[in-house]
């Protein structure tokens, strides 16, 4: 019965670890609820705590700035940001991810959550975005207008129709009466931008804010047909939020004058 020895020892060790872990877990859990509860009552109207914001990848620069503004304005509050494609975020939220605020790059993904009854109240549109042609700084294919993208030999990269920027590209294509034959249909606008910035592609269709955010790595060429496909960005409180007060305060900042100014600075249009 020698083989029992190690088993018993292992079990005992596991049991010891478990009890030690439980013992260690106990006190901090109880003390941590103390300050949080006290904080929210003592602040008297000033919202505090943590707000988790799920935002479309294209909002990274603006929301990072707005989040630090928010934290400075509301001492005791903390904004946790998570950036990804809008449909990824919508899927995560519908699977129970702990988000307080959702900012989508299109109305479709917001509608998905609204239809599923996962939002608190109605969403607010806070920004718009349009497409722009991005070319490498040297503009090797001498692109000047949208029609130039259809010239043979020009390597154009766009978003796939399944993602918001691709749907916008399709609309613009139809509006311009130009048929593109892209060398690649990427699943995110970041990938399109990357292929242009690295010089792999001669041109790509991205958002005007992406061009602005990329600095001098790409050059932007605006075109009139872009106005046919305006992307609207909605923001809303998630129904399962545990801190709806703070979530509402953050949304107020984004949709207010300060948010407008930051967003406009990044190239976003008014809703």
């Amino acid at each position: 019965m020698k083989s029992w020895n190690p088993r018993i020892t292992a079990l005992a060790a596991a049991a010891a670890l478990l009890t030690a872990g439980l013992a260690a877990c106990g006190p901090p859990a109880s003390t941590s609820t103390g300050p949080a509860g006290a904080g929210s009552s003592a602040a008297a109207g000033q919202p505090s705590g943590t707000v988790t914001v799920f935002a479309a990848a294209s909002l990274k620069a603006t929301f990072s700035k707005l989040a630090s503004d928010f934290e400075a304005k509301n001492p005791g509050s903390k904004v946790t940001l998570s950036f990804a494609g809008s449909s990824d975020l919508a899927t995560q939220i519908s699977q129970g991810a702990p988000a307080d605020v959702f900012a989508s790059a299109d109305t479709r993904n917001m509608a998905k959550l609204a239809d599923a009854g996962l939002l608190e109240g109605a969403e607010t549109n806070f920004a718009t975005n349009v497409l722009q042609i991005a070319v490498p700084p040297s503009n090797p294919a001498s692109i000047a207008a949208f029609a130039d993208l259809a010239r043979p030999g020009v390597k154009v990269v766009v978003c796939a129709s399944q993602v918001p920027c691709g749907a916008a590209s399709d609309t613009v294509e139809k509006a311009a009466g130009v048929t593109l034959s892209p060398v690649s249909e990427e699943s995110s606008v970041t990938d399109v931008l990357g292929k242009v910035a690295s010089g792999e592609a001669d041109a790509g269709l991205v958002y005007v804010t992406d061009v602005k955010g990329a600095g001098d790595k790409v050059k932007g060429i605006p075109f009139p047909e872009a106005g046919k496909a305006v992307n609207t960005y909605p923001i809303a409180t998630v129904g399962s939020s545990r801190n709806k007060e703070l979530a509402a305060a953050f949304i107020a900042l984004v949709t207010g004058a300060e948010g407008r100014k930051t967003l406009a600075g990044a190239g976003f249009g008014a809703p």
Partner: peptide, 13 residues
């Protein structure tokens, strides 16, 4: 593949 080759039906997807 996504980073290097892109994504186009029948060619790289």
């Amino acid at each position: 593949t996504l980073t290097f080759a892109g994504s186009l039906q029948g060619v790289t997807r």
